[in-house]
């Protein structure tokens, strides 16, 4: 390592390290953005169907309230499972695309299903608030 006493020398030796660090951080940010974009695209393959099911559950929840909450929750989970089974075989080939970009099936399913379920629960609680 080059160590110089002058201020300019220190600046010159520190600057490349900072530039490299910034470049690495940008690269990591880009990778994260790409991964989010890929997961978003994957979610688009079933969000419409899932949203329709969520909307139907919201209507039922508006009518009957918390008395059918557990039934609706099991219904939502069952439909998500069916969607999972369908997409798993229907889009089997496309998983190679995601894998070649470092996005595993576990990450794709984990993020999209959790997000979908979270949105579902938030919407049901919002319905309950305005009921």
């Amino acid at each position: 390592m080059c160590w110089t006493a002058s201020g300019a020398g220190i600046r010159n030796s520190v600057r490349p390290a900072l530039i490299n660090e910034r470049k690495n951080r940008n690269r990591i940010d880009m990778r994260l953005v790409k991964k989010i974009r890929l997961i978003g695209h994957f979610y688009r393959s079933f969000w419409l169907l899932s949203s329709l099911i969520t909307a139907a559950c919201m209507v039922l929840f508006w009518e009957y309230g918390f008395s059918i909450f557990s039934t609706l929750l099991w219904f939502k989970l069952a439909t998500l499972f069916l969607i999972f089974r369908f997409i798993k075989s229907y889009k089997a080939r496309e998983f190679y695309y995601y894998h070649n970009l470092g996005v595993s099936k576990l990450l794709l399913w984990g993020v999209t299903l959790s997000f979908d379920l979270l949105v579902y629960l938030i919407l049901l609680f919002q319905v309950n608030r305005f009921r």
Partner: peptide, 13 residues
């Protein structure tokens, strides 16, 4: 993917 990439025998994109 930094180590290995794979072209399957079918269309994957």
């Amino acid at each position: 993917p930094d180590l290995l990439r794979f072209l399957p025998q079918f269309d994957f994109i």
